Amino acid sequence: MADSVQHISSSNDFSSLLSSTMYVIADFYADWCGPCRAIAPAYAQLAKTHSIPNYLAFAKVNVDTVQAVAQEYKVTAMPTFLFFKDGKQVAVNGAAMIQGADVRNLTNAAEKMGRLAKEKATLGTGSR
């Protein structure tokens, strides 16, 4: 199976993903960041488990190579996980973002978004 995580290489890539996918979880990371490397396998597994084309995507945004996107969302710590619905940043489980390698909170957020995306996909609702 192909990589379930979409690697963002430009602002246009990110905009395109947000406009084509109902829900997006974005991992803002840096190659030099130890906690980012530590949580990467868990993030990849969540993506493999919960991704649904056009309904839920998992993205990785390297803050050093795609600085414009990191600046747009005011990312100041790595890793930072942001959540989007219909192209707009949203809170999940009361949190607008998760900063740090918090596997438990990330898993809870991914499972919740996964359930919502699955419901939408099953019903065939939304413009996707």
Rank of each mutant, 00 (worst) to 15 (best):
A38S: 15
N108W: 00
G94V: 09
A30P: 01
K74C: 06
T65W: 03
I52N: 04
D27Q: 06
G34C: 06
Y55V: 04
A110S: 10
Q67A: 15
S10Y: 08
K88N: 12
V92Y: 03
I39W: 01
Q6H: 12
I8Q: 03
A47I: 07
G100C: 08
T125R: 14
M22I: 12
S127C: 08
K48T: 14
N62G: 10
G34V: 15
K60Y: 02
M113T: 08
G124L: 08
K112G: 05
N93C: 09
F58T: 02
Q89F: 00
V61R: 04
Y73T: 05
K48N: 13
P41S: 10
N108V: 05
C36Y: 06
M97V: 00
S127D: 11
H7W: 04
M78T: 09
I98C: 07
G34I: 12
Q6F: 13
S19K: 13
A26D: 02
V24E: 00
K120F: 11
A109D: 01
K60D: 03
T125F: 13
I25W: 02
F28K: 08
V69H: 02
F58P: 00
T125K: 14
C33T: 09
L46R: 01
T107Q: 09
F81C: 02
Y43N: 03
D13I: 01
D102L: 10
D64Q: 14
Q89E: 14
V5T: 04
A44N: 10
P53T: 11
S15R: 11
D31K: 11
L116N: 09
L56T: 02
W32P: 01
H7T: 09
V92R: 08
A77Y: 07
A95C: 06
N12V: 13
Y55L: 06
Q99L: 06
T80Q: 04
K85C: 14
D31L: 11
C33I: 08
N12S: 15
A30T: 08
P53E: 13
K74Q: 14
H7E: 08
T49M: 10
F14Y: 04
A38H: 11
I52C: 04
V66K: 00
S16N: 15
A95N: 11
L17W: 00
M97Y: 11
A109S: 12
G100D: 05
H50Y: 15
S19F: 04
F58N: 00
E119P: 00
S16A: 13
G114I: 03
A68H: 12
K112I: 08
F81Q: 00
G87I: 10
N105W: 00
Q6A: 11
A109E: 01
V103T: 12
A57K: 10
A70T: 03
S15Y: 04
K48Y: 03
K112T: 14
F81K: 02
K48S: 15
A40Q: 09
